[in-house]
Design a protein around this nucleic acid. Structure first.
Lengths: 213, 213
DNA sequence: GTTGCGCTAGTCAAGTTTGACTACTTGGCC
DNA sequence: GGCCAAGTAGTCAAACTTGACTAGCGCAAC
């Protein structure tokens, strides 16, 4: 099993989960091509430095890495004003990888950053796909709460008292997230938000309307 | 102000907040001296890989770094069985730094890992000190909830709908944490847990009882 | 009696993140 | 018409994290 995981790594594209990667790919894709500073500004305007703790340096690295991995293409633009900029565009593989990352972030509990990033990029998915993955998260959270409840009935000796108590906070967070996920799932079922398969989505908006600048 | 912050850095010890650093220092201190593998095992038995995402590699690095910074001392032990091990002991500066990190982790919202690590090391503080800092956290959380509520009344245009919605989850987590922190503060006031200034604490237990192995 | 597995103990290279730094352009103000 | 502040665009070295790898020892089964 471990060996297989290593072998499949070549297909799925490389490094492990990363909220930075997802957000950067997502912004480039949504803008239909962007340079580093544009990604950085967009993320800032979304308040992403706070909920995803992304700093400028990481963005440029993530862009270069994604380009090296064939998820983005680089087009050097001679500096008409200021230093030369590099324009990035998403490739087909980049789009596929991103969608997969969004799905992963929704599924995977443990890793709040990935969840946040996935929510931000939620409209990359079709409505039914998004609902399915959020429901999977709900199921996983419920399962974890059960496991954790059992763990608290038979606590591990030599784990200090206050460390066990900390599990209470964990459970509280899980319950909060559970309710929130359920409500999100319901809202999506009722047609909230514009998803990838809806008219007027990013996929059907003409290019010249995509960028504000 | 910025300049001052840089100057004071020399006094406080160097790098920024790190849950790893806090946990490693804490374990070494609690055990009254430990080698890498011992720290690693102890953290594992506390379930720390899950709530603090600490991997073995980081532990050894953190130990060396702390030793280089004068927070720990290294005593090479010739390998009586197996490879030679290095025994680490906390210095006075290490203890001070650690207590300060615990306080910081309690105060600082944003950064769940530091909170978890601080809770794990809570008995490093005196009872009144711990209560004071937890109460400060409560106050900060309340203030942030107010700010966030205002932000939602006047949402930022060009922030997508679903990103604004994500703030709901944020707020939910904050409320959960708020309740939990209040309850912890109350329990501490009522005398729960053995704190640094209580009889029978790690500070008053004789050395020969400290290590299980 | 040795093969293999798991535990002890840790190293190391590769990758990622950070935050300080560079450099150029506007636009406003005196 | 010159200077400073703010915005644009990005580089870079240093620090940190990760996960795979090394290596000795005990003991259980074959």
């Amino acid at each position: 099993m471990g060996k297989l995981a290593i072998e499949t790594r070549g297909l799925s594209g490389g490094g492990r989960v990363s909220a930075t990667k997802l957000l950067v790919l997502g912004i480039v894709h949504l803008s239909g091509g962007a340079h580093g500073y544009q990604v950085r500004s967009e993320l800032q305007s979304w308040g992403a430095e706070s909920w995803a703790k992304i700093k400028p340096g990481s963005i440029y690295h993530a862009l270069k890495k994604a380009a090296a991995d064939g998820l983005l293409t680089e087009h050097a633009e001679p500096g008409n004003s200021g230093p030369e900029r590099v324009l990035y565009r998403a490739t087909t593989r980049g789009r596929d990888e991103m969608v997969e990352l969004v799905r992963d972030g929704l599924r995977r509990t443990h890793d709040p950053d990935m969840l946040n990033a996935s929510i931000a990029m939620l409209p990359m998915l079709t409505r039914t796909d998004a609902i399915a993955h959020i429901n999977e998260r709900v199921a996983r959270l419920e399962a974890e709460l059960v496991v954790q409840a059992k763990w608290r009935e038979h606590p591990n000796r030599d784990t200090p008292e206050h460390v066990q108590d900390q599990a209470e906070l964990w459970a509280g967070h899980a319950r909060t997230e559970l309710e929130w996920a359920k409500s999100l799932s319901k809202r999506l079922s009722e047609g909230a938000y514009t998803m990838a398969d809806d008219p007027g989505s990013w996929r059907t908006v003409p290019d010249h309307l995509k960028m504000r600048s």
